[in-house]
Design a protein around this nucleic acid. Structure first.
Length: 464
RNA sequence: GGUCCCUUCGUCUAUCGGUUAGGACAGCUGGUUUUCAUCCUGCAAAGGGGGGUUCGAUUCCCCCAGGGACCGCCA
C-alpha cells in the first residue's frame, strides 16, 4: 500500500470560497491522519479568468487557517504538453477519435433535442469513421471513446456504491480544436502524475469521476480512491457560490473570527465524531476519518461560527488571544501600539467576557487602544451639570490615592451615591462615559484599573 | 427534461433493529449581576408520506413526495 497522497485543486479565478476551504481542510486532515502528503494544484488553464493574485490569495488563506501544502504548488498550465501527449496516445491506441462536427452543428442538435424534450447526447457521428474518409480542411476536436454498453460502478468512500449506465456518458471532448486539453483530461493526467492515492472533492464532481476513471483504465493507470463530500448550502438550501455574501474566508476574518474557531466549525460541518464538538488542531488530526463524513449537504450557519469563535475567545491562552487580536487589529483596525501591550493583556480577562469576535474585543478595548476618547453626541448630552459635579467630586476623592483598585474605589463610589442621593447608575454612567465615550462596556472598576490613575485623572479633567 | 445523490429538533449532528430518540448552537424561562455581557437553572423543539421485512423499525427493502448536484470546445 503506497503512502497516502491527496491534493486540493482550486482554480485561481477568485477568492477562496469557504466550501473550498473545507474541502482543503478535509484533504489535509485526512493526509495528516494517515501520515501522507498533501499537495496544492493550481488549475489555471482558463487564461481569461485566472489571475496570479488569486493564486497568492488562495495560498495565504489556506495558511491563515493552518493548512500548508507539501512541496511546490503544481501549476496545471505548465503541464499542458503532457496532457496533449496523453490525448495523442489515447488516439493512437484507439480510445479516442477525431470529431469534425462544427460548434454550430452541435448547437443545432442540442436545440432540436430540447424542442423534442429528449436528453441531448452527442451522436458519436465520427466515432467509427475511417481516417481516410475524414475532411482535411476542418480542425477536429478529439473525443474520448466512452463505453456504450453496460454500467460502471464507483466505490465512493463517502457516497458508497454509485452505479451509472455507460451510455449516459457521452464521448466527451479531451482536446479542443485549438489543440488545448479539457478539464477531465488534464485532471486525470495531473492526478496520475502527481501520484494521488485519494481524491477528496466536492460532490459536484461525481459525474466527472466516471469519465476520469475511463481514462485511467484506457491508459492502464492505477485508479485512485474517490471520496465525494456533500456540498455546503446557503441557508436557503442552494449551492454556495462566489456570488453569495459572506462566503470567502476574508469575510470571516474581517469580522474577527479566529482561524482555529473557523477550522473547528468547518470540521464539524458535515463531519462528526460522536458528540464531540470542540477539537484542538491535534485532536482533529487524530480523530479525522472519512467514515465520519455525512452524506447530506449542510447549511452554513453564521450563528454557530460566532458561538464557536466565542468559545475559543473565552478558552484559549490569553497570550494567544492577544496575538490574534494584534494581528487582527493590524490588518483591519488601528494598529496596537506596543506600549499598550501590558494594559491590554491584563484587561483581556474581562474584555473577552463580552466578545464573540475580535472586533468586539477591539470595540470594548478602544478606550485603551486609542489615546483620545471618542464621544458620540447623544452620550455626551448625558454629561450635564449634575454629572459634572459628580465627576468633580470623584476627582477630589481620588487625589490622595496611591493607585486605583476596587477596594479603595468602592467606598468612594458609595459615598458619592449617598451624597448625591442617587443610585449606582447615577454615579457610574457619567464616569463611564467620560472615560470611554460609551454607555456600555466593561465593568466600571475594570475601567478604572485598566486605565490607571494618571489616565483617569487626565480624562476626567478634560471633560469638566 | 435526463442521470445521480440526499431527507432525525430552526441549524450542525448522535443513534450502526429494542433509547423517555442524546448533545451542541440559536430560541424562550428563572437566578446571579454595576451598564452591556458572562455565568448558572429550567423549558420548548425532530425521524417527509405510504407500503413491506421483523416479535420489534429512525435504523433494512420498495414506491411516492420534497430538496440538491451534474448535464460546456469552464474548471
Amino acid at each position: 500500500m503506497s503512502k497516502v497522497a491527496t491534493r486540493f485543486a482550486p482554480s485561481p479565478t477568485g477568492a477562496l470560497h469557504i466550501g473550498g476551504v473545507r474541502t482543503a481542510l478535509f484533504n489535509w486532515l485526512y493526509t495528516k491522519n494517515q501520515n501522507g502528503t498533501f499537495h496544492l494544484r493550481i488549475e489555471d488553464t482558463d487564461k481569461e479568468r485566472s489571475k496570479e493574485e488569486y493564486k497568492l490569495q488562495i495560498i495565504k488563506s489556506l495558511k491563515w487557517i493552518g493548512i500548508e501544502h507539501d512541496g511546490d504548488e503544481y501549476i496545471q498550465s505548465k503541464k499542458i504538453d503532457d496532457h496533449i501527449k496523453v490525448a495523442n496516445e489515447l488516439l493512437k491506441n484507439g480510445n479516442a477519435y477525431k470529431c469534425y462536427c462544427s460548434t454550430e452543428e452541435i448547437e443545432e442538435q442540442k436545440k432540436r433535442a430540447k424542442q423534442k424534450k429528449i436528453p441531448y447526447v452527442y451522436d458519436r457521428k465520427w466515432r467509427d469513421v475511417d481516417e481516410k474518409d475524414c475532411p482535411k480542411n476542418i480542425k477536429p476536436v478529439i473525443r474520448f471513446k466512452s463505453k456504450i454498453d453496460g454500467s460502471s460502478l464507483l466505490k465512493d468512500l463517502v457516497q458508497g456504491d454509485v452505479q451509472i449506465e455507460n451510455n449516459s456518458i457521452e464521448d466527451f471532448i479531451i482536446l479542443r480544436n485549438d489543440g488545448t486539453p479539457t478539464y477531465n483530461l488534464s485532471v486525470t493526467v495531473d492526478d496520475h502524475q502527481m501520484g494521488m492515492t485519494h481524491i477528496i472533492r466536492g460532490d459536484d464532481h461525481k459525474i466527472n469521476t466516471f469519465k476520469q476513471i475511463q481514462i485511467y483504465l484506457a491508459m492502464g493507470w492505477e485508479v485512485p480512491k474517490f471520496a465525494h463530500i456533500p456540498l455546503i448550502h446557503t441557508l436557503e438550501g442552494k449551492k454556495l457560490s462566489k456570488r453569495d455574501n459572506a462566503s470567502t474566508l476574508d469575510d470571516y476574518s474581517k469580522i474577527g473570527i479566529m482561524p482555529d474557531a473557523l477550522r473547528n466549525y468547518l470540521l464539524r460541518l458535515g463531519w462528526s465524531y460522536q458528540d464531540k464538538e470542540i477539537f484542538t488542531l491535534d485532536e482533529s488530526i487524530k480523530f479525522f476519518n472519512l467514515e465520519g463524513i455525512g452524506k447530506s449537504p449542510s447549511k452554513l450557519d453564521i450563528s454557530r461560527i460566532l458561538s464557536m469563535n466565542e468559545h475559543y475567545i473565552k478558552t484559549i491562552d490569553e497570550n494567544d488571544l492577544y496575538t490574534n487580536l494584534v494581528n487582527y487589529c493590524e490588518i483591519y483596525k488601528d494598529k496596537i501600539n506596543t506600549q499598550k501591550e501590558t494594559k491590554i493583556k491584563s484587561s483581556l480577562s474581562f474584555l473577552k467576557n463580552k466578545a464573540k469576535t475580535l472586533e468586539d474585543i477591539f470595540n470594548n478595548a478602544k478606550y485603551i487602544i486609542l489615546d483620545e476618547v471618542k464621544f458620540n453626541e447623544d452620550d455626551l448630552k448625558l454629561i450635564d451639570n449634575k454629572a459634572k459635579k459628580i465627576i468633580n467630586e470623584f476627582q477630589n476623592e481620588i487625589k490622595s490615592l496611591e493607585s486605583l483598585n476596587k477596594e479603595n474605589l468602592e467606598p468612594i463610589i458609595n459615598k458619592l451615591i449617598k451624597q448625591n442621593e442617587t443610585n449606582f447608575k447615577g454615579v457610574g454612567q457619567p464616569l463611564r462615559i467620560a472615560l470611554t465615550g460609551s454607555k456600555f462596556g466593561p465593568g466600571l472598576y475594570d475601567i478604572f484599573i485598566s486605565l490607571g490613575k494618571d489616565d483617569v485623572e487626565q480624562r476626567l479633567g478634560k471633560i469638566l
